[in-house]
Amino acid sequence: MLELRLVQGSLLKKVLEAMKDLVTDANFDCSATGFSLQAMDSSHVALVALLLRSEGFEHYRCDRNITMGMNLNNVSKLLKCAGNDDIITIKADDGGDTVTFMFENPKQDKISDFEMKLMDLDSEHLGIPDAEYHAIVRMPSLEFSRICKDLSSIGDTVVISVTKEGIKFSTRGDIGNANIVCRQNTTVDKPEEATVIQMNEAVSLTFALRYLNSFTKATSLSETVTISLSSELPLVAEYKIADMGYIKFYLAPKIED
């Protein structure tokens, strides 16, 4: 028996919006730790890892570990039927082949439930070891989103370099080239407006902009994004989900021929 009650239902709506264009079908894993997912895009260039910890739910019952395969576009369609202020409850029976999403409005005078068939999906779980990154940059998520969008009007790929000077995003295309540098800036009114650069070693890597643009669909989940870079590893863009966990996007770099 699985029963998860999330008072801030809008979080789940935002999480699905952030993932549904990147990943088509995915297994949601439910355990005592929380509600999680790891999935790749169809070309295996990007990976998304989601964790919503059990403590973040008002009620969390998961008698045994359950894996539930779902089409994210269909889940997103169902969650669009929930109001932004609704409480969302996810229910499933052990060994069942359906999941139920229940929505309650704040006045508690409208209750909807939607039952969806589960899918049997091959699991493609990758082991992601903890790593020391060459550079970790925390910046406002809206700023990162703006940079990715602006640069994709000029080029298809971006070179992200971190040096003592700051984090530099560079692209080139038919009409010319562009460079955007963000320097460390901690003299801000609110901590979430800061750009904080931790650098152990200078690093420079090339990435496809369309994936980064897809990651920025998570912008509404967090005011800041943390970008981790290492020369031998995929980039990680992490959006923390307040009091609950995170959504992390991994992107494999372009490799020099």
Partner: peptide
Amino acid sequence: KGSQGRMESFFKPV
């Protein structure tokens, strides 16, 4: 421009 890397080149299946 270089070729696009894939996740499996960096992380192994478990």
